[in-house]
Design a protein around this nucleic acid. Sequence first.
DNA 1: GCGCGTGATGAAAACGTTCCCGCAAAATCA
DNA 2: TGATTTTGCGGGAACGTTTTCATCACGCGC
Lengths: 327, 327
Amino acid sequence: MAVTIREVASAAGVSVSTVSRAFTSPEQVQPATRQRILDAAAKLGYAPNPAARSLRGGGTGTLGLIVPDIANPFFPPIVKAVQARARRLGYTVLVADSDEREADELETIAAVSKRVDGLILWASTLTEDKLRELAAQMPLVVVNRQVEGVAEVRISLSAGIAQAAELLRAYGHRRCVFINASRAELRRGKSIQESFEALDLSLVELGPYEPRFETGVHAATLVAAHEATAVIAHNDLVALGVLHQMANLGVSVPGDVSVIGIDDTLLASVSTPSLTTIRIDPEEIATRAGDLLIETINGRHTDGPAPCVEIGSRLIPRASTGPAPVG
Amino acid sequence: MAVTIREVASAAGVSVSTVSRAFTSPEQVQPATRQRILDAAAKLGYAPNPAARSLRGGGTGTLGLIVPDIANPFFPPIVKAVQARARRLGYTVLVADSDEREADELETIAAVSKRVDGLILWASTLTEDKLRELAAQMPLVVVNRQVEGVAEVRISLSAGIAQAAELLRAYGHRRCVFINASRAELRRGKSIQESFEALDLSLVELGPYEPRFETGVHAATLVAAHEATAVIAHNDLVALGVLHQMANLGVSVPGDVSVIGIDDTLLASVSTPSLTTIRIDPEEIATRAGDLLIETINGRHTDGPAPCVEIGSRLIPRASTGPAPVG
DNA sequence: GCGCGTGATGAAAACGTTCCCGCAAAATCA
DNA sequence: TGATTTTGCGGGAACGTTTTCATCACGCGC
């Protein structure tokens, strides 16, 4: 059915070896011959069979990306960016969804791992040992996990948090609520608590809850009880729950209460009022994680300690934050 | 590196053929032998090499899904559902993003097509001839395109539109605006215009515009000029733009104007007010498209006309619709 | 008791590449 | 000019499976 290298070879009047070389290491074949081969290949519509190529040991040309939940609006832009980056570098991307469940994650990894040259694992629920074991078997990059000896991309919210604290402070807020649903990025480095205290802002932590819209709805009703005038939510979705309930309660945002989300998903830019949020740049994560994985595949990091790149964050001020109410 | 079928064979004291059979056609091998092989395979951690398998001609075990834009919140649930369905049937899914540009789409298809057994093409921008040509080369299912001789999943909004018209009519609305950005599903069957006229509702069509948030913002300012009390937007995103601008203009939703979206994305359920919208069930699309593709791969549809399944829609009433203002 | 179908297993070819080796001709050097 | 390196190309093995075909033992009916 499909046209093979052999047909191209006979069409160009050369051997299969030469055709193979014309594609994989062009400098080893005479320009004239090479051109003849390329023409023949183009005319026949030849494209190398990836299965045969990877069977021979050339790798699969595919990168695996496993995320906890594709339907979480945080991930689609990242998936998209990883795909774009990978394609530029000659790779395809196999995306899978671990459904946030450990059993599924192992199954997903098993299904994917034989088809890819390396894996990006986002916020894996696996144990450190398991991850190390996996890293020994294949190139691996973890995001939002810290495990000795495994290449890592780390997201740091501290810059964004600090900017949020500054903004709230400048607006005259003194008391703030944080709706927590356990973000790994926050457990490292300076805690959000410290960032706020440094600016003489008091912070009440609620939760941990599930990172859902309803969590925001629920938590919003607690804000008044804590006499807080600002809310930082676990993510944009939760922040939208807060916005929703504030509207129900007749509380004005940002008139009475300021609300800040995290992630800068689509949700933040299209809400009413539009949501001030802490942005983590998907392009940057995608580029760094993708490049790191490809470097690992190419054996760039076999010596020395496992590399670790840190991705920063920054505040995107929008309409959900404003001056604290007077009195 | 990886454990091969040969090692399993010698560990179990049988030939490679028997090991292969134990996995692919278990009934052909004696239960006792089979068990011995399975045990040996489990102990060694053997998993068949997909590259070798597909080289031999067994197919790749992978389905391709090409969507216009993964970052569009309509698609992630569909991707997720296709993946879930495919996995149940023993397939992996390769998702790619055509970026809504024709050149990219061809490139994407080229990159993906050699790695998959079949392709689901969503709202392709390719010509009918090109699609037919593609369908001749490999199993193909198109969604939201109609091309003679190619298996098709068709989305019908008419039921949802009819329900929307009924709801608005019951609420006493008489004049409605439709913000158009060209939906292929609407060009077929009864038009939205007809659905509304049948209920004695007048409908003004705006556009076509780009399906963006700003489109909704812009169109919202035109609603009053048309003396309309209800808006149906091209999709949820555009509807949210309308909601946003209505709030800016001090127009109450649903007090003064009712707003209806299309797609029932996450956006609709988390907006304030929550958005009445026309739902297209992602699970249903995913299941039907996936099954149709697998049937096509298995050669179930070689005779007779290309199959076509239609997916319905229905209204999800939420808080953005209400009685028309009196007077 | 003999031929024969039957069912389980083994041997080996084939899938399309890549890449190591070997060979000849061309290019370089003394 | 003769020896030696370089260059360009062809031959063929190998990658890990699946699958066809052959083999072999077994049990059946005659």
